[in-house]
Structures are given as structure tokens and as C-alpha cells.
Amino acid sequence: MAKDQGYLPLVTEGLWHNNQALVALLGLCPLLATTTSATNGLGMGLATTAVLVLSNVTISLIRNLVRPEVRLPVFVLVIASFVTAVELTIQAHFYELYLVLGLFIPLIVTNCAIIGRAEAFASKNRVDRALVDGLAMGVGFTLVLMALGALRELAGQGTLFYQAHLLLGEAARGLTMTLGDDFQGALIAILPPGAFIGLGLLIALKNLIDKWASLFARWRARHTAPAAAEPSLG
């Protein structure tokens, strides 16, 4: 990728083509463990995004000061500091969400997606690009977490955005939707196997959309090419 192509390629990479969860399959531990509901997925995704943006910016700032031999320990140290800060913030302001996500917030340190972006992108690029990359990758990751959480919550419990007020405040109570009281959810969707099955289905969906998109692009190219060629003849 050339250095100055603008920010758009970074955004599409992060959201779709190199989505950390669906394509790179990084950060599967929090992805599979915390997506028992859409709210949990959103919370975990936001926390990861915050850490990702902060660590990307910091590492990009210090990229010329750190000797290559010690870069990995330094990256981990930077990430760990931000994770601790984020964890304390969540504990202070969203205590009930903190109880739900629990152990997995400190484990953001070991999220391969974050150290992966630090090593592969932030340590080689300017600060502004590292910031955009962290944001795009984080949002892409968050969207997948939320989609998987919504899928599992719907199938397993028959609700959507249950307990959303824990994360988004009292105004979000109305966000909670239910499929009716006599809906009998499949418990397996909330249990760990449901995470694997759900992620597999999401990846399949993404591949299907890609396939359709390429078919559509080919179809459009075939139908517009002659039309575009005609004026040049005249």
C-alpha cells in the first residue's frame, strides 16, 4: 500500500477487507467469550477500540525511539497501561457491566488484534494514519462483536439489547426488545458452542456477500464497458 493514499483505504480495510474478527481471526478469546448478548459485545468492543486507538497513537509517536530488539515488551507495556486505565474507568462508571465482562477486560492486553496492529501498522506509520487505522479496526471489531452478540442473544434468549441501560444509561431502556414471553430460546447459542457456530455463520455470510459483490461488479463491467467505449469511437 502506498504511503499517502488518503484515509479511505484504511477505513475499508478495518471495517471489511481486513476485519480483525472475520478475516484475520484475531482476538477470538474476547470475541467468543463475551458476546453472550449485544450489550456485552458492544461494551467489550468499545473498550477494545479505546485501547486500540490509544495504543496505536502512542506507539506511532514513540516508533523512532524504541530499539527494534525491545519493541515487543514496550508495546505490551503501553497496551497494558491503557488497558488498566480503561478497566478502572469501566469499574468506576459502569460497575454492573464491569461485573459481567469481568476477567475479560484485563485480558484485552493479550488481544492479538491490538498487538497485531501495533506491530504491523502503528510502528511503521505516521500518527494520523495510526489513529485512523486504530479507529477503523476497532469499529470493525466492535461491529462483529455486536452482531455476534445480537445473534446469540436472539437465538438463545429471545431478546435484543437486554440490559442496554447498564452501558448506555437509563435512556437506553427502550432499546431492549423481546420476541415474546413464550419464546423458548436454544440455550446452546449462549453457551460457548454457540459462539463458534455463530462466528462460523458470520464468516460464511461475509464470504457470501463478497462473492455476490464480485459477481455484481463483473456483471456491471460487462454491461457498461460497451457504453463507455462508444463515445470514444465518435
Binding site: Q184, G185, A186, L187, I188, A189, L191, P193
Partner: peptide
Amino acid sequence: VFLLVSYP
């Protein structure tokens, strides 16, 4: 097993 886990 899918049903046993889901609807015990």
C-alpha cells in the same frame, strides 16, 4: 446433543 443442551 444440540437439543439436550438447549432444551434440557
